[in-house]
Amino acid sequence: MRIRGQGVSWKEVAIHGGILTFLLITVFPIFWMLISSIKPPGIVFATPPVWIFKPTLENYIQALGYGPRGWGTGMSHFFWNSLVIATVVTVSNLIIGALAGYGMARYKVGGETLPLAFLLGKMLPPTVLILPFFLIIKKLGLGDSQLGLVLAYTALNLPFCVWMARGFFLDLPREIEEAAMIDGCSRLQSLIRVVAPLALPGLIAIGILVYVFCWNEFMFAMILTSLKARTLPVAASLFITDEAILWGPMTATGVIIMSVPILLTLVAQRYIIAGLSAGALKG
């Protein structure tokens, strides 16, 4: 047992030490990538590792396209693609998903069956959709287009959005809405002015998770795009092949890509935690 106010117990020290060590090992790869990305290119892969050095942005400059082996305008173009696709999918999925979730929570549309169908869709592994999507996108002439990826990501995320939104709306008391309607709001007005603000934390949680999914997604992006609509992860994966030479710029690229989801996690961890646990434990 812990002895309060009488110094530290060894048991507490051991537990904290053990768990913090495990945590340090867990975040070490992230830390190592950051450190390596600001090393001067010559010592990035030195063995034994160089721990003391003058930090430099040279790798970033090279990765961003200003150095001799840079990516040219590619990087900013791929960045733009990632940004547009993730934003469009997040906004449209939130609107469509929240509306459907609301309908199913409030009016029991589709009874028990419809929510179940969305839950099943949420658990579908994306892998089984890759071939038909490849063929359909080809048929529609949407190969290598932002729209093609937007359609794919919408399909992959919508069941999750609907299911989560339904859960959040089920938790809101019905009376608030009825009061708004007695005060003269129409259904749509009460939904937008009263219900949506109350459901906002939940919607933010869903939105962040969808955004990060789109930002991180690799398989569909690789198969459905070639150059014009290529996203950052695909661009980085092509970069990875020349292993011997480019470790420096590669780690810089890795840092640039992961900075978005990592910063979102640090800033909005409350929402992410709420979203992840609600998404899994609400049956």
């Binding site: 991180n216 992860p233 994966s237 890795g254 890509i257 992961m258 989801p261």
Partner: peptide, 16 residues
């Protein structure tokens, strides 16, 4: 700390 690897872009993770 444990959630960071899950949110991190898998391509970046594979790279490091």
């Amino acid at each position: 700390g444990l959630l960071l690897p899950r949110m991190m872009t898998p391509v970046s993770a594979a790279l490091v």
